[in-house]
Design a protein around this nucleic acid. Structure first.
Lengths: 166, 166
DNA sequence: GAATTTACGTCAGTGTTGTTGACATTCCAA
DNA sequence: TTGGAATGTCAACAACACTGACGTAAATTC
């Protein structure tokens, strides 16, 4: 799993100073990462929470409220407030489950899909620029480190849709 | 700038699907990234905002309130609430500037340094584990992509202390 | 020396997003 | 039929951000 192929001295990349730089890189990069969607959302009556909900409903159409709770890691009360706004504004619709009628399966409406596209276009544009500037090898490393940084359950959520479309 | 050395096909890493995976990796990894300090902070009367203040005061002892505002990217009212709590609890002290008496230079007390150490130990432990699992090449790529993702001003803040100790 | 700007602090109000706790409904499963 | 799971909703609250307005002291500029 590790790549300690260059012997003992390769551990120089694990100094406290290097780790601190990594921590700050996460902090500053995450700010940039969220800034473009945030700009779009301000003015509309939505925030980051709405963005996240719309993103994951788009990723997994027909997902249930329970699934979404697990992915987003918030309480149902918190998610409910967000979903209600999206329902009321006609961005998301819920269909009662066929197999289990307690479940609500969530779908984006055309209007919701349009917002999702606007938000993810902005976020992807920044991502694409960063990827292009860094190159494919760096991108591979980027993904590897981020994956290793996740909690096991978060990692499962992340990997769970590598090939499963729905 | 770019590393398109392998010809046209190397652009496969820029597909929308790959970019979406990168976006979700940022989301899930950031949750892991903040979870350990968050656990320590809950129970104490502090939150992430206090963590960030303590982190950057530790990184740059003697920094002014204005500097901190620029680094953290928040309003002075927001920062002031946080700093007041840290003053009152004796974690941070402010010394009037010698050259410019309007400025307040911020320093961690022993007590503040102890909290900073507890928080950053936890965060570094996760970072170290991720770095070790991913290896030095991946870490290099990780840093490169994150840096490319920052806004120019954030990047300046980030790079501004690569060698300058104070 | 007076006027302006800078650095900082503070009061008051507001909004987003998260939290607990409590309770109701619907429906699957034993 | 009863217990528990999935969902929705109400109320209260906390952390953390924001804007706007005002005040003070010190530095700078004219």
């Amino acid at each position: 799993m590790a790549e300690n192929s260059t012997g003992g001295e390769s551990l120089l990349f694990l100094t406290d100073e290097n780790l601190r730089k990594g921590i700050e890189a996460m902090f500053f990069a995450y700010r940039g990462f969220t800034s473009d969607p945030d700009r779009i959302l301000e003015g509309l009556d939505y925030g980051r929470a709405h963005h996240r909900a719309v993103h994951f409903i788009n990723r997994s159409p027909g997902t249930t409220v329970g699934n979404l709770l697990a992915v987003l890691g918030v309480t149902k009360q918190s998610l409910n407030r967000v979903l209600r706004a999206l329902f009321d504004d006609g961005l998301v619709e819920a269909r009662v489950g066929r197999a289990d009628k307690r479940e609500r399966h969530l779908y984006l409406t055309d209007k919701g899909a349009a917002l999702e596209r606007a938000l993810s276009d902005a976020q992807r544009a920044r991502m694409r620029a960063a990827y292009r500037a860094a190159g494919p090898v760096a991108v591979q490393g980027f993904r590897t480190v981020l994956e290793a940084m996740m909690d096991p359950e978060q990692r499962r959520q992340y990997q769970g849709l590598k090939e499963s479309g729905a």
